[in-house]
């Protein structure tokens, strides 16, 4: 089983040079720690920055420079600043190549639910609905099962939907899973020490297994 950092580390392998990328809050934010230095990528923050740099040292903290999670940040070389309308124009316009975000549920046709639990205080969707409605490539980082052991890879989402038919790949603590264009999950890799059978048992949606399933490498 992978911990959160290992999920982030595995997702970082999906990143390609030349990409503009939006990282969501939580595990996705950790992905930045594992992107190899020799890849030329630009991280977008939807509150108005292209080129998120590392967190600042104490003496460089600037309240006028935060990411979408409201954390203090720095700017990398070649950064650009803009307003929120322009930020989402570049998201909806398809200029951001890759979006990595967390989820509560993903269905086998690629629907994602990650913003609302009925009966609980609703905090809002933030930019998630705009991102999932627009990005070419959406990778979800999440645990394979909920805390009470229920599968989060479902036939249909039970929670309110954030976006439809948009997720392309899911990296969980147990597996790397592709969402097939025609619907259904396909198992690509299993976490070290995790059996194919365990992944099948913990996946409610249809899971296609083809040939030997390799163990993840980092």
């Amino acid at each position: 089983m992978l911990n959160k950092d290992q999920i982030a580390q595995r997702i970082a392998k999906e990143v390609q040079s030349g990409q503009y990328i939006n990282l969501g809050i939580g595990i996705p934010t950790l992905v930045a720690n594992y992107i190899p230095d020799d890849l030329e990528v630009v991280l977008q923050s939807e509150n108005g920055l292209l080129g998120i740099g590392p967190f600042p040292t104490e003496d460089k903290v600037d309240p006028d420079l935060i990411n979408a999670g409201k954390q203090t940040i720095t700017m990398s070389k070649g950064s650009a600043l803009f307003n929120s309308s322009e930020s989402f124009a570049m998201i909806r316009g398809g200029h951001v190549h890759l979006t990595i975000l967390g989820a509560m549920e993903v269905s086998e046709n690629g629907d994602i639910a990650n913003w609302k639990i009925p009966g609980k205080m609703v905090k809002g969707m933030g930019g998630a609905m705009d991102l999932v409605a627009s990005a070419e490539n959406i990778i979800v980082a999440m645990q394979h099962c909920s805390k009470d052991g229920q599968s989060k890879l479902l036939k249909e989402c039970s929670l309110p939907i954030t976006g439809i038919r948009c997720v392309k790949k899911i990296v969980t603590d147990l597996a790397v899973v592709e969402v097939l264009p025609e619907g259904g999950f396909r198992l690509l890799e299993r976490a070290p020490g995790v059996s194919v059978q365990e992944i099948i048992d913990k996946t409610e949606g249809r899971m296609l297994i083809e040939g030997e399933i390799p163990e993840m490498s980092f």
Partner: peptide
């Protein structure tokens, strides 16, 4: 919000920005 004193309309962030624009 839970007591009903406050009304809330939640809007996707990009939609909010564009509606204002």
């Amino acid at each position: 919000l839970l007591s009903g004193e406050l009304e809330v309309e939640l809007i996707p962030q990009g939609t909010l920005a564009e509606r204002v624009r």
